[in-house]
Nucleic acid binder design. Structure first.
Ligand SMILES: [Mn+2]
Ligand SMILES: [Mn+2]
Ligand SMILES: [Mn+2]
Ligand SMILES: [Mn+2]
Lengths: 223, 223
DNA sequence: ATTATAATTTAGAGTATTATAACAAAGATG
DNA sequence: CATCTTTGTTATAATACTCTAAATTATAAT
C-alpha cells in the first residue's frame, strides 16, 4: 500500500514536469530521474497500475487526482524540510536540496507537523517556492523572470531555481535572496547582460542567471 | 561501496546482540530483524563478503573491525537523532526510536555535525544510552539493574531500555528519567515488587519494569 | 551409539528496480 | 508519400532483499 521511495520520486518528477497540462514524455522523465528510458517505460506501467497516473504508450503520462495528491505531499515535505534545514540548522541554501530529497521519504507526519509549527506555518521554502498546504492547496504566485525586466524597472526577488547548487551559491553571493528589492540599471544588447542594483551594490549578470531568478512587484520608475 | 540501509541495520543488530564477546546466532538476528532465518543466512554470507563480519556456518557471526566501526557510526547517528527529536522538536521520548531508525540512514555528516553542535556535543541519548564519538569512542558506563537494589538503597537512574515504546511511556509517567534520584522503600518477597520513591511520589513496580531500568551512584543509607 | 529435537542452511521463487540490445512507432524531410 | 531520424517499447538480464519448504547439521536425551 505504502508507495515506495522510487514511486514517490517518479510521481513528484511527473508533477513538476507537467507544469501546465501537457503530457510528460518518457525521455524527459528519464533525464530528470537519471535512468534509462526503458526503465521509465516499465515504471510508467506500474504507476498506471497503482492508479497514480494515466499512461498511454507512445503518448506520455499524466497524473491522476491520487497521483497529484501524492506529488503535492512530497513537495510539501521537501520544501518544509529545506526551510527547516536552513532556518533551524543553518545549512547553506545551496546544500539543502539533496538532503531534503532523502528526508522527504522518511519523516513521519508527526515530526513534519512539529517542523511546520516551529517554522510558524511558512508559505515559502528558502528558494521562494510555495509550500503546499496539508490539503494540497498552493499559495498563488505571479512572477516574471528577471530576464524579462527592462532598464529602470524595480522589483522584488520572488523565487530562485534550486536545482543547480553552484548557481544557487553564486546567486546567494550576489545577495539575490527572496524578498530582496532590486533595480535594473541597464540591459546590454546582443548578449542581454543585465546590470542590477541590490542594495548599495551593482552586479552584472548573464542570461542564464537572469532566467533562473523570478521577480514580483514590478514598478517602472524613471523614463 | 556505500553500504545499503539493510546492511547497516544488520551490522548494527549484530553489534547490539554481541554484547560481550559471544558470536551472534542466526535465530537471534532473525528475531530482531523480523525476517525469516533463511534470509539471515544469505545476508550473513554477504556481510562476510563485504568484510563487515566473520561468518562460520552453524557457528554464528561476529563483526570485524570494519563492521564495528560501521555499527558504532550508525548507533551514533541513531542516538544523536533521538536526542535531537526530543530536545529540538519536543517529540515524546517513546516515539523517537522508529523515527531515528529511518533517519539514521539518510542524514549527511554535515547535518549530523550541526545537530551535534546544537545539542552541545552530548554524551547520552534521551534514554541514557551513551552516544559513540566520531572516532568510535564510547563513554564508559557502570550501571546496575534497578531490580538488583535492596531496600533502603538510594541511586540515580542512568538508562532505560528503549525498545518497547509502551513501556517507555509507562516509565516516563512514573518520572523515572535518566538523572532522577530514587530510593528503594521496599522489595516484596516472591514476586519481587519494588516500592520506589521518586521525588515526593512512591510507586510500586514489577520485575519486568525493574529489570528495564539501570541505575548508578548507589548509596546504602539506613539499616 | 542411536534417536529425537531444534537450529540452520540450501533450493527454488517472487518483488522491486535497474540496465542493454533489438524492434516499433511517430515525426520530419525532400 | 517513401525514407530517415528520433523517440519509445519489448525482451532479457542483473542486483538486492525477501519468502516457504525441504534437506542438513548440531545438540540433547535416551
Ligand atoms: Mn529542493
Ligand atoms: Mn527549494
Ligand atoms: Mn532507539
Ligand atoms: Mn535510545
Amino acid at each position: 500500500m505504502e508507495p515506495t521511495q522510487t514511486v514517490e520520486d517518479y510521481v513528484r518528477a511527473i508533477y513538476q514536469l507537467q507544469e501546465g497540462a501537457e503530457d510528460v514524455s518518457t525521455s524527459a522523465l528519464a533525464e530528470v530521474m537519471k535512468v534509462a528510458p526503458a526503465t521509465v517505460t516499465s515504471m510508467l506501467k506500474k504507476l498506471d497500475q497503482l492508479g497514480y497516473a494515466v499512461y498511454t504508450p507512445y503518448q506520455g503520462v499524466s497524473l491522476t487526482e491520487s497521483g497529484r495528491r501524492l506529488a503535492l505531499n512530497i513537495v510539501r515535505r521537501h520544501r518544509l524540510v529545506e526551510l527547516y534545514l536552513v532556518q533551524a540548522l543553518e545549512i547553506p541554501w545551496d546544500r539543502v536540496h539533496e538532503e531534503a530529497h532523502r528526508w522527504e521519504h522518511v519523516i513521519s507526519d508527526e515530526v513534519l507537523a512539529k517542523m511546520d509549527e516551529v517554522l510558524g506555518h511558512p508559505e515559502r521554502d528558502p528558494h521562494g517556492a510555495p509550500i503546499p498546504g496539508e490539503n494540497g492547496s498552493l499559495p498563488a504566485t505571479s512572477t516574471v523572470r528577471l530576464s524579462a525586466l527592462r532598464s529602470g524597472q524595480r522589483a522584488v526577488v520572488a523565487e530562485v531555481a534550486d536545482n543547480v547548487p553552484e548557481m544557487l551559491r553564486y546567486i546567494g553571493n550576489l545577495g539575490l535572496y527572496p524578498d530582496v528589492a532590486i533595480e535594473i540599471i541597464a540591459v546590454a544588447p546582443f548578449d542581454g547582460l543585465v546590470t542590477v542594483r541590490v542594495g548599495e551594490r551593482q552586479h552584472i549578470i548573464g542570461q542564464r542567471i537572469a532566467r533562473s531568478i523570478f521577480v514580483k512587484d514590478i514598478i517602472s520608475t524613471e523614463e
